[in-house]
Simulated assay, not measured.
Amino acid sequence: MAKSVYSVVLSDEVVAEIDRLAYAEGTSRSKLIDRVLAEYAGCDTQSRRMTDIFSCIEEMARPLRQFRLLMTPSDELFQLKSAVPYKYNPTVKYAVELYEGDSAAMGEVRVSMRTQSGALLAALHRFFLLWAGLEQQGFAQGDALEYQIEEGKYTRRLRPMQGAQSVQVGEAIAGYIRLFDRALQAYFDRLGDGQTAAGRAATAAFTRGLTQEVAQL
Rank of each mutant, 00 (worst) to 15 (best):
S7R: 10
V8A: 13
V9E: 13
V9Y: 12
L10R: 11
L10V: 15
E13R: 07
V15A: 06
E17T: 08
I18Q: 07
D19H: 07
A22G: 03
A22H: 05
A22S: 08
A22I: 07
G26S: 10
G26M: 10
G26D: 07
G26L: 14
S28C: 10
S30G: 09
S30V: 09
K31V: 11
L32R: 07
I33A: 08
I33E: 01
D34T: 12
R35P: 00
R35C: 03
L37R: 05
A38S: 12
E39V: 09
T45S: 14
Q46Y: 06
S47N: 07
S47C: 08
R48E: 02
I53F: 01
I53S: 01
I53P: 02
S55R: 05
S55D: 04
M60K: 05
A61V: 01
A61K: 01
P63R: 08
L64W: 05
R65D: 10
Q66H: 10
F67L: 04
R68T: 11
L70I: 08
L77F: 01
L77H: 03
Q79K: 13
S82K: 04
S82H: 06
V84M: 15
P85G: 11
K87A: 09
K87G: 05
Y88C: 14
T91R: 04
T91Y: 11
K93L: 14
K93C: 10
Y94G: 04
Y94T: 01
A95N: 00
A95E: 12
E97V: 13
L98M: 09
L98C: 08
Y99A: 02
Y99K: 01
G101Q: 13
G101E: 09
D102E: 13
M106T: 02
